[in-house]
Each structure stands twice: as structure tokens, then as C-alpha cells.
Design a protein around this nucleic acid. Sequence first.
DNA 1: CGGGTGGTTGATTTTACTCAACTCAGGTGG
DNA 2: CCACCTGAGTTGAGTAAAATCAACCACCCG
Lengths: 247, 247
Amino acid sequence: MADTATGSPRTLLNETRCQTCSLSSLCLPLALELQDMDQLDAIIRRRAPLKKGDSLFRQGTPFTSVFAVRSGSLKQMTTEGGGEEQLTNFYLPSELAGLDGIGEASYPGTVVALETTTVCEIPFDRLEALSETLPELRGQLYRSMSKEMRDDRRMMRLLSRKTADQRLATFFTNLSDRFRRRGYSPFSFRLSMSRADIGNYLGLAVETVSRILGRFQTQGLVAVSGREVNILDLEALIEVAEQEGCR
Amino acid sequence: MADTATGSPRTLLNETRCQTCSLSSLCLPLALELQDMDQLDAIIRRRAPLKKGDSLFRQGTPFTSVFAVRSGSLKQMTTEGGGEEQLTNFYLPSELAGLDGIGEASYPGTVVALETTTVCEIPFDRLEALSETLPELRGQLYRSMSKEMRDDRRMMRLLSRKTADQRLATFFTNLSDRFRRRGYSPFSFRLSMSRADIGNYLGLAVETVSRILGRFQTQGLVAVSGREVNILDLEALIEVAEQEGCR
DNA sequence: CGGGTGGTTGATTTTACTCAACTCAGGTGG
DNA sequence: CCACCTGAGTTGAGTAAAATCAACCACCCG
């Protein structure tokens, strides 16, 4: 997705402050006054871009910071009892990774870059301290956390009640929506994750993902070529995603 | 579960203060000084007990408070697009319901009592205000939220990777553990939820739940009679729950 | 040019769902 | 007090959906 992200909304290199960041209206600064934004700005650490496959933090590593994605994308994975990995989330620009480590000694999951990705590191103790005097910031943090909880609930619903077709359709409409909100085309984008990632995330075998993508294609819902996606009939896709009483 | 909850750890009627509440070591007051606890205490509203089937709040109702369970148990459900209900959580004594509504205008789910249940209502604006001066309280709130996020992740893992057997085994070991932490027997308890609830929660058909319970019984893992559960071989149950590479 | 990864397609199998019948316990009302 | 009814739970038979196994393709990179 970063490949796309370096595109449309101008992502200037000197865009190193919340005030000038094109994502500020979606990210933590949302609802902050200019001067407050400066204060938040002061505690944020910019990091060297992550390369594809680099991990932002690993499961079990001491928890220190939450991270806002500036460009690119991340995936979060958890391993339990030495078993295989479960992919629990994708993070797009303006989204916060690491929230589920708050209050814990260590991160409960590993977060890895799916492509070249830049993030803002926000040391949590500093954020905590700052939020003591900035109610809006605190509120925003709560909002981010409870939003992630609601997203998790939606995901649980998807995993326990939806068919493979519905899962894929939901995945695409959800991505489309998130791109739209960020100012990118909701109809045409590049997937930064592999089919295996998608399958893992949606609780499906890779083969199933592939097959259903093929079917969607013949049905004229989407045009997929490798990781390039064109949504041809968003309405119909939403229809598939939400159709009920199928099982 | 309340049936059990009214039992062992003495639940006196005049136990109307956090300081004397047997759950304070698990609930929000955890890590608070005595005097701080008093302050929290002051904002908490006790409510008349809910009867089985009563709803604590309904999806779409304006968000005002979070609720700590004092005795009994709750289930949380969400309906999406007029579809059927998805059961997303059970709440036992000391656990907080409503966290996922924080920062939203309305509750994203409906919470219903599974049996006679008493709760402490904590108006969120008051909690917010109080947490401004009590870092420990704030931290505890963060911890509760991020814990729920981690539980959600575990649930997602369960729904997308585990077999029906593993799901049931996980469900029982998890319940057992939660009862143990609360001072009840980890081996013998009463389910406050129906088979349908369990199935809905675990993403399984009622019949499947029933069948697997039967199998567990013949395997000597548990003895189930109606809603009365005796765990006969917790080790083996954990084994089943965690076995990997089965699919 | 060869090896490897990521992706697709086909055939078969497995798992859990659906549909249906049936049991059981609790509650109600005659 | 008992017959009946209802809802919850169990059990069985057949089915459908997606997993697995296996082969194959295409692109990329050295």
C-alpha cells in the first residue's frame, strides 16, 4: 500500500510535524488545538523507514511506545504456545499500532512492515504524562482503543458467522473504505499483503482466497491482477459482504 | 454462575464500598491507595440487581457508563445490519462491561444478564475526571482496555484456527481459570449460559456443542449434567485446547 | 538458466452444519 | 395432582463448504 501511499496526497519529506502532516485529521492530533499539537509533536520520535519485512517490535519485547503509521502498512501477528502465527490486524497510515500492549510489560504481538513504511513513535510514558493535561488527547486515545475493540468484534463476527465469499468481500470493502478516508482511490489500489497474509487474517486457506478472488473476477465484481486491485462493482461487493441468513 | 457467586466468597449485602468489596483486588480499585479508593467509591452508583434476561444497556443507547460486575454474569451481543446476533463476550464478577463504547456516542453492543446479577455503575465522565488526578486509576483503565483487546485477539485466533474440540476445551479451561482467580472452584461450576449461547460465542452450531460435550464426557475429561460442570482432567483439557498442527 | 517464492487450479477429504426426530425437565392451568 | 406444553438439550443421517493434497504456472532474482 505504501507504493500507493507515496503517491496522491503529497507526502513531503519535510513533513515532520503533526501540524503539517496530511494525516493529522485522522490520527491522534485530531481534535487538538494548534498549541496542544505542538506539545504532542515534541514527544514524537521519527524513525528511519522500515523496509519490507522489518519488524517494528516483536512479541515479548518490553512495551515502550505506540506507533502511528505515516506511510506504508504493517501487519500484526501473534504466536501462542509455539504454534503458528495468527495475523490479527493490518495497519494503514494514521492508524495506531501497539495499543494492545498498554499496561502490559511487553508487546503481545509482533508488528512487521509489509512494504517500506514510516512511523511516528510515541513513547507511552510521555503520552501518558501529556494526556494528563490534555483531555482531548486522552479522549482521542480512548477513542482509538475502543475503536480497535469494536473492529475486533466485527472481526470475530466475520470469523464465526461469515462464509469465505463474505469474508473476502468484507475485506475488500473495508480496505476500499479505509483508502477512501485517507484520500486515495477507493476503487483502485495495490495490496501490500500476500494471499497467505489475507488467508491467515480471514481464517481461510490460501487456495480458498485464490479461488474466490477468481470467482469475483468472473462475476465482474473486481479485476485482480497479482496485487493490483480494481473494484468494478462496489455496490455488489457490499451486497455480498452483508448478505445474511446464508447459513 | 451467579448461583455459585452468591456462595463461597461472602457477599454481604452491606458490601457497598470498594474498600470492603471482595473483588477489589481484581477490579478497577486494584493498585489504588485507600484514600483514592474512597474517591472512586464516591462516583460509583449501585444499581438494583438485574434479573435473568434484563439488559444492562442496549446497542445504540447513549454511552454513559462502564459497569463492573459484582455478582452474576453478563453476555454481550452485537447485531449488525439487522442480521442475527453475535455473542462477543461473557462478563464475570470484577470484569468491566461497556469499555468498547468509550469515546463513542452510543454503546456498540447489548449487554444482558444471564442470571440475577448485580453491577457497579461507573459514570464515565466522572471516571474520566477522577482519572485525571489518579494516575493509577488511569493506568488500570488502560490495562482493562488493552486486556480486552488481547482477549479479543485470542478469540480471533480461536475462531480462525481452532477445531470445534479445541474451542470447547479452550472455553472450559478459560472459564475454569477465571473462576479460580475469583476464589471459586476451578473444577466444579455451573454454566449460566445456554448451549446456544456457547455455540454462538464459539462460532459453532448448538448440535456441535452438544456432541462434543458428549465426547468429552465419554473421554473422561469432564462430567456435564445440564449446566452443571465438573472438570475431571484439566491437564488433558488444556492439552486438547492447545494441541497444534491439527489442521 | 535454474531455483525459489507466490499464486492458481483440480481432485479428494474432512469437518461441522443442516434438517429432523426425539427426550427431558419445568411450569401452567384445568 | 396430573396432563400438557414449551424450550432446552441430545442424537442421528445426509450435505455443503472449505481444507488438504498435489500439481502446475509465472515471475523475479541471482
